[in-house]
Design a protein around this nucleic acid. Structure first.
Lengths: 123, 123
DNA sequence: TTGACATATTCCCATATAAGCATATGATTT
DNA sequence: AAATCATATGCTTATATGGGAATATGTCAA
């Protein structure tokens, strides 16, 4: 099996950095394709293709205005990502960095050993 | 150019559903590869390869214990994803769903039209 | 209708999977 | 050292990119 399609879900769609930039750009205000092209300095077909992917997973919405198409980010579609990452919040909050943990373990063992000899004491 | 490598960053790494499952499994407690294989019913080489990717972007850490290798999720590496998605939080919070918006627009126009005729009034 | 503007799609190509299977590496025990 | 348990890597294959260039579609204006 190959990698899952970029259009299979929001996780795959936002894996592409350019698409994340587009989402950030379009969440503040809706915008025609041409403005995105100018803002991100990509060429137009590239932007259209990224928008296609984002549209397929409902991360952006379009509406027509004259000959322009106004795209906007559908923030709601990002919620599942936010909620998935939130599961890990409690862990990074109370989980010390390994380096720190090891340092503390060492300190417990031999509290007199100064681990940061360059540190200057405050007068 | 092809798609960015799965090992290029956390966004690409977690795009794969199996890897997300592994991360959830390993955040509660560290675990040898064999236990992951059993829990997720994948075959061992597949798990090892996913772990390789996760390790490359520091989403998991390993330590050896006898002939076992104990893997655990490094929750801190998920933080950037959480923070990126958090940018959109204010938007989905105050942004009504389009369907609702249109419904409200209609109500403003002709407030007597009942959009939900099946709704029962509370006595 | 014709032309000009705005956006979308198609084709080509280099690259990267993820799964399945076989095999290699590492560590432990006898 | 040999056997065994645990994990990692190598190889093949089907599939999916993303960018570039060319072209198609759609909309408005004269």
């Amino acid at each position: 099996m190959a990698r899952a399609a970029t259009t299979s879900d929001a996780f795959n769609a936002v894996a592409e950095p350019r698409r994340r930039e587009i989402l950030l750009l379009l969440v503040a205000r809706e915008m025609p394709v041409g403005d995105i092209v100018a803002a991100l300095r990509l060429d137009q077909p590239s932007v259209s293709k990224h928008l296609r992917v984002l549209r397929d997973v409902d991360l952006v919405r379009v509406r027509r205005n004259g000959r322009h198409k106004l795209y906007s980010t559908n923030a709601n579609a990002i919620r599942p990502l936010h909620e998935w990452t939130a599961i890990f919040e409690r862990y990074w909050k109370h989980q010390l960095d390994r380096v720190k943990q090891r340092a503390e373990a060492r300190m417990k063992q031999s509290p007199h050993l100064n681990l940061n000899p360059d540190a200057k004491e405050k007068p």
